[in-house]
Design a protein around this nucleic acid. Structure first.
Lengths: 353, 353
DNA sequence: CTGTTAGCGCTTTCAA
DNA sequence: TTGAAAGCGCTAACAG
């Protein structure tokens, strides 16, 4: 089933059939209708590789994410898939597993597959060889979540968000606030969030907060629980992502602490599951699906204009600090009430401030 | 950078360069080395669409899943991506959002993109128009999760699993066991699980169990909570998936019930997060990543043999019933101890109640 | 408005 | 063991 069958059947040349599909305004009304009718009757579907070979545009976008097992990236990919679909692009997702080496080989594969552009989240955007490669290859790209002044990014201001979180905790009377992160060196976002965390403490005239780094995900819960058993345990934990926050919740349970009675926990990401828990998870909500959509929209727009996305046009999307049952007034203040609203049945996410 | 540049540079014909990449055994040793060396030096990457156009094989697999927001599918996709990558295939994932119409249009897109084969999970495998279309189009496919005798499937015996779950609950003294499902009509898997549920009850001489159907995901928690406030509430809930089970956990909290003290809850899927909760979620673990891998491996094997996967070769992968803190002896039996093992932790974790 | 034609980059006979 | 040449299906000048 090629363009030629349709042409013969409709009694026109193959060029006309091609035009009927690509520039219908250049085809006479009745010719157009006849071609469309026969094409449909024959079940003709244009051959993508032939088109790609000829036009040098594949209408495929590459996507590189650390993992799909963290819902935050799955949500983002969902947004990417939806927007790509509505823009007539297909996506080829590759997973880097937080390893720089795999980020690079993912780029290789995408180049080989002839994608038109790439959306990616890298461990560290500054000095990334993957990005250098992309630039060398002339492939337009947009970073999702990463936030670097010299790069085209769609992100959220994690530093400001974490500072705001600390301010809120201070207002609730917390003074022993610790931050829990994965491997700090492996994520520029975690570093930025940590910076915001320390900045807010400093601004309040409080000594630098404790940093609990839990490199090995499997054992993280135990490590945290151990720390929580100490006499000098923190009264609030700021986590650099929601998965970590869940582990903190679990660690608190293992350590015999009640949340938020003995310990407040706040996450970062806003994965949907957080709202379904008891206690529900307080967190900084990133609009992951929107981040994905925005990346695609921007990339496709640039593609159409024949330009590459420019760092200056980077988008900073708004975050929302979502109150949750996991966060409340500091226990030393005696009063124990949730940070904002009580466990409500009509659980509508509420913007704080 | 085409094959021709390499040829000229290496002083051979383009045919030789092509052979060097595709059938190296047909090229003289030193010619081969020379070609490889110059290809590498020039950073040559073969053009995928040209190759596809010529060979009629794209080395791309289409994937259609209901959603990526449910971790069970994200995990499966992760397995698909990993195996595809190691087999030299790229994947194009599309999301159907549990809508039959979108399943069908996803297939259309995949056909248009010229994928070599498709891996998919459909709402109902029997009488699916999508599958008919695939067959008509001559596109090989494998179903993931769906389980139908006449189709090539990689799945788990959900009916047996649910029966086994009910047996276990009966052994724990439960008699008022209800099943919670989404829209039953929209998922053949939920139907199969429900069948197993009822079968086990019947076999034990117990009247048919209550079916709690919660069509609208957002309001599910409320609906369930309402039911749990009834005087005649069940003592155990068998959920047709883990996301639903999480909502049941939340619903129990809203209804003022303790889990597993007042109510046992068991899920289905085995999403990773379930183990991180307190109480941890008892569930039927499907090997989602393996299901994904197996689908790809099987499909690629058939592709290499030039055949389509046959229904008779369908794989039934083993499930595991994972004990969790959400499931315990029926309250009427007085004794409250976990279903199997205590939370695996050295320092005897205790649920805060 | 429509047709003719020259490739896009690669694989694969067929000859040498 | 290598090379020449014929397309794979489509788009985009260019002519008419």
């Amino acid at each position: 089933m090629t363009i030629e069958h349709v042409a013969r059947q409709a009694g026109v040349s193959i060029a006309t059939v091609s035009r009927a599909f690509n520039t219908p305004q250049l085809v006479a009304r009745d010719t157009l209708e006849r071609v469309q009718r026969t094409a449909r009757a024959l079940g003709f579907i244009p051959n993508a590789s032939a088109r790609t070979l000829r036009t040098q545009r594949s209408h495929i976008l590459g996507v590189v994410m650390p993992t799909l097992l963290n819902p935050v990236f799955a949500e983002c990919l969902d947004g990417i898939a939806a927007e790509a679909q509505s823009q007539g692009y297909a996506i080829v997702p590759l997973v880097s597993d937080y390893q720089v080496g795999r980020e690079e080989s993912a780029i290789d594969r995408l180049v080989a597959h002839g994608v038109d552009g790439v959306i990616l989240t890298v461990a560290t955007a500054a000095r990334s060889r993957s990005l250098a490669r992309l630039r060398r290859e002339g492939l337009p790209y947009v970073l999702a979540y990463n936030r670097q002044p010299r790069q085209p990014c769609v992100s959220v201001d994690g530093e400001a968000a974490c500072a705001e979180v600390v301010d809120a905790l201070l207002a609730l009377g917390h003074r022993r606030i610790a931050m829990v992160v994965g491997t700090l060196a492996a994520s520029d976002r975690a570093q930025q969030r940590h910076r915001g965390f320390q900045r807010a403490l400093a601004r309040a005239g409080i000594p630098p907060g404790e940093l609990i780094e839990v490199p090995f995900l499997e054992s993280a819960t135990q490590t945290i629980a151990q720390r929580l058993r100490g006499r000098d345990r923190p009264s609030a934990l700021v986590c650099s992502n929601d998965l970590l926050a869940l582990r903190c919740l679990r660690a608190a349970a293992l350590a015999g602490l009640s949340v938020p009675g003995d310990l407040s926990v706040i996450g970062f990401d806003g994965i949907a599951l957080g709202e379904e828990l008891s206690p529900s998870l307080a967190t900084v909500v990133q609009p992951s699906r929107e981040i994905g959509r925005a990346c695609v929209a921007w990339l496709v727009r640039s593609l159409r204009e024949g330009s590459a996305p420019r760092a200056e046009d980077s988008a900073s999307l708004p975050y929302v600090i979502r109150a949750g049952e996991s966060c409340a007034v500091s226990p030393v203040h005696g009063v124990r009430r949730p940070m904002r609203r009580p466990p409500s049945s009509r659980n509508h996410p509420r913007r704080t401030r």
